[in-house]
C-alpha cells in the first residue's frame, strides 16, 4: 500500500518548555510554514487598508510630513529653542520622525494584528507566526514608502548619499526588531486587557519627547541622562548619522541594543507561542 505515515500531533496540559527541542523544532517549522500565509495576510491588509481611502498610500507620508512641518515652524519662529544639529533642521527632523514612526509601527504591529485576527485565531488553527510576520512586512513596506519622502528631502538639500547608507538600512532593521520585541512581549497581556494598548499609545508619545528625534543629543540635565539610557537613542541617532554624516557617534550603544533586542525578540516569540492557546481560551469563552 505504501501510504505515507501521517504526521501525529499531541495535545496535553504539559508545559511546552519541558521539551525545548520539540518546541524549537516546531517554532522553526511553523515559521517556515507561515511564509505563504504571512504574505497573503500582508497583501490583504495593505490592499484593504488603502482600498477604502481616497488618499491611499499618501497616508504613509502624511504623519511624518506634518510632524516635520510643525517642528520646523516652531523652531523657525523661535518658539522652541533647539541646538544646531549640524545639518539642515528640516532634514534632521524628517529623518528623525520617519525613523520614529517606523519604530512605533513596529511596537504596535503584533498587538494590532492579533487583536484584529481574534476571530480567526479562535476558530482556525494556523501557524501563529504568520501574524507577526505579516505585521513585520507591513512595517517594512510602510518604511519603504516613506523612503521616498527622505529621497525627496535629500535631493532638495543636495545632500550626497554617504558610503554608510547600507549600514543605515541595517540600523533600521535593528530599530524594527527593537519595536517588535517590545510589541510581542506586551501582546499576551494586551490581548487580555485593552489597558495595555492604551498605555502603549500614551507612553510612546512621552517616549517621543525623550528621544533625540526633533532635537540633537542634549549635553546636560535630567533629560540628557534619560536620553542617554533610552534604548532607542543609539539606534535612531546611528541611523541618522550614517545616512547624513557617514559615521556614528553611538556605535557601542548600537551594538548592545542590537544584541539585546534580538535576544529578547526570541524570548518574546516563545512567550507568544506558549501564551496563545491560553489567550484563545479566554478571549472566546
Amino acid at each position: 500500500m505504501g501510504q505515507p505515515t501521517l504526521k501525529k500531533t499531541f495535545y496535553s496540559p504539559e508545559s511546552q518548555l519541558r521539551q525545548p527541542s520539540i518546541l524549537i523544532r516546531e517554532m522553526l517549522s511553523d515559521l517556515f510554514a507561515s511564509r505563504g500565509l504571512a504574505w497573503r495576510l500582508f497583501v490583504r491588509n495593505i490592499s484593504a487598508q488603502y482600498r477604502q481611502s481616497i488618499l491611499g498610500y499618501l497616508w504613509a507620508f502624511l504623519p511624518p510630513l506634518f510632524s516635520m512641518a510643525i517642528w520646523v515652524l516652531l523652531n523657525s519662529q523661535k518658539i522652541i529653542n533647539i541646538d544646531d544639529p549640524g545639518m539642515p533642521y528640516p532634514l534632521f527632523v524628517l529623518t528623525g520622525t520617519v525613523l520614529w514612526q517606523t519604530f512605533v509601527d513596529a511596537i504596535n504591529s503584533p498587538l494590532k494584528l492579533v487583536t484584529e485576527s481574534k476571530e480567526m485565531l479562535a476558530k482556525i488553527n494556523f501557524p501563529r507566526e504568520a501574524l507577526i510576520l505579516a505585521g513585520l512586512l507591513e512595517v517594512i513596506f510602510n518604511f519603504f514608502i516613506r523612503i521616498l519622502l527622505l529621497v525627496a528631502i535629500f535631493v532638495w538639500y543636495r545632500t550626497p548619499v554617504t558610503g554608510t547608507a547600507g549600514l543605515a538600512f541595517l540600523g533600521v532593521l535593528v530599530l524594527i526588531v527593537l519595536g517588535l520585541m517590545i510589541g510581542i512581549l506586551l501582546t499576551p497581556l494586551g490581548v487580555l486587557y485593552n489597558d495595555v494598548g492604551r498605555t502603549i499609545a500614551i507612553f510612546t508619545q512621552f517616549w517621543f519627547f525623550l528621544t533625540p528625534v526633533i532635537y540633537p543629543m542634549p549635553k546636560e540635565g535630567i533629560v540628557a541622562l534619560i536620553v542617554q539610557y533610552n534604548p532607542v537613542t543609539p539606534v535612531l541617532v546611528s541611523v541618522r548619522e550614517w545616512l547624513i554624516l557617514g559615521s556614528s557617534s553611538q556605535l557601542m550603544g548600537f551594538c548592545v541594543v542590537s544584541f539585546v533586542s534580538v535576544g529578547f525578540l526570541l524570548l518574546g516569540w516563545v512567550l507568544y507561542r506558549i501564551a496563545m492557546p491560553h489567550l484563545i481560551a479566554r478571549i472566546s469563552a
Binding site: 501525529k8 495535545y11 488553527n125
Partner: peptide, 17 residues
Amino acid sequence: NGLIKPDKGQIEMCGRV
C-alpha cells in the same frame, strides 16, 4: 483542533485536520 490546550488528559491527532 489544537486551538486550546486540555487541562487534563491527552489528545493524539493523525494527519491533516
